[in-house]
């Protein structure tokens, strides 16, 4: 365990230096846009660390909204005729700068699905493994943040390789993994500080930040209740009434992983894509027979919350499928609040 001090005047220089070995990804606000999004930073572009959180979660770094799985051609003149080819993609080392701790923790939840002994999603895994996560601790959590209730938190280290803490005139970088250490070296940040003192300082700030989080949820009772009891509860109609069945909550959520597979064909060649999909859309469960097991809105709303707060909890016995980032609450057009739903399910 060690802690490195990064002077803010060395920040940009270090980032540029690390480019020789890493691609850099971070939140960046394009000219004239309202908010930053995670993207690969071109030379000279700096990650925007002022915004507390991005509207769209950084899950797209390893799980893009649309991703080509393979390409094919049926043109007999081509030597690749009738072959399925995975497209070339850059999986060289990539440093994700300024990701928030709960967003990084979300990858660990998604990993349970994409990286298992039986099934391994090569697209997700390759992209994930290429990443070094340089997280930015949250000193001032906003009021939809309830990450302390979800095993994550404003200073959560579980998904990170390095945790940066903003100390006004410098950053303290807590090295968590060897991967993180390698990145700091590549950036030329090596000024060690007294570890114990620094850790104490960081812990103090961590406590301060955690105290600021007023929203709490609890899922103790959800754990004890049976699936059927929750499934047949009478509050779902009420919860679902306002819902307009858009996919905002699922698309902005860092832990939602559902996707749809589509083929697009042009002439003799074509591609197969993975596209984000969500349980809010009727088409998601529509069978080719015409039957839809989740045919009405209330079923779909129930599915989302049951999956996140009950099925996942039961299946992995390792907490709920939510890191408490608060995006779904903040951006829901009709203000459906997962904290309230959790409270209902828990009572």
């Amino acid at each position: 365990m060690k802690v490195i001090k990064i002077d803010k005047k060395d920040w940009v220089g270090g980032l540029e230096k690390s480019r020789s070995a890493y691609r850099l990804v971070g939140p960046f606000k394009e000219n004239g846009k309202q908010f930053p999004v995670f993207k690969e930073l071109d030379k000279g572009q700096e990650p925007d660390l002022t915004t507390l959180n991005t509207v769209i979660s950084p899950k797209s770094i390893v799980f893009p909204q649309s991703e080509v799985m393979f390409e094919y051609t049926t043109d007999e003149k081509s030597e690749d005729c009738n072959l399925l080819k995975r497209p070339e993609k850059n999986y060289s080392p990539c440093a994700v700068i300024g990701i928030r701790p709960y967003d990084a923790a979300a990858f660990l939840l998604v990993q349970k699905n994409f990286d298992t002994p039986d099934y391994r999603d090569p697209y997700w895994c390759d992209a994930y493994e290429a990443c070094t996560f340089i997280g930015m601790a949250i000193n001032n959590p906003d009021n939809t943040d309830f990450s302390t209730s979800t095993k994550s938190g404003p200073f959560d280290e579980s998904g990170l390789d390095v945790l940066l803490v903003d100390m006004k005139d410098h950053f303290l970088a807590k090295v968590i993994t060897d991967k993180g250490d390698a990145y700091l070296k590549a950036a030329g940040w090596t000024a060690k500080v007294d570890t114990d003192a620094a850790i104490k300082q960081i812990d103090e700030m961590k406590n301060k930040a955690e105290v600021k989080i007023a929203s709490k949820i609890s899922f103790d009772n959800i754990e004890k209740k049976s699936i059927m009891e929750l499934y047949e509860a009478d509050f779902w109609e009420d919860v679902a009434f306002a819902c307009i069945n858009c996919g905002t909550c699922t698309y902005l959520c860092p832990t939602c992983w559902c996707f749809d597979i589509q083929d697009e064909n042009h002439g003799k060649s074509g591609k197969r894509f993975k596209n984000w999909d969500g349980c809010m859309f009727p088409l998601f469960t529509h069978h080719s027979s015409g039957h839809n097991p989740r045919g009405i809105k209330v079923m779909r709303v129930r599915q989302r919350f049951m999956h996140k707060l009950k099925y996942f909890l039961d299946k992995y016995e390792d907490g709920i499928m939510c890191v408490g980032c608060g995006r779904c609450t903040r951006f829901c057009p009709v203000n459906i609040d997962i904290r309230n739903v959790c409270k209902l399910m828990n009572s």
């Binding site: 909204q65 069945n245 969500g278 057009p333």
Partner: peptide, 10 residues
């Protein structure tokens, strides 16, 4: 645009 279809559904 992320095609969440919130505009359509609202």
């Amino acid at each position: 645009c992320i095609r969440c279809y919130a505009c359509r559904n609202a």
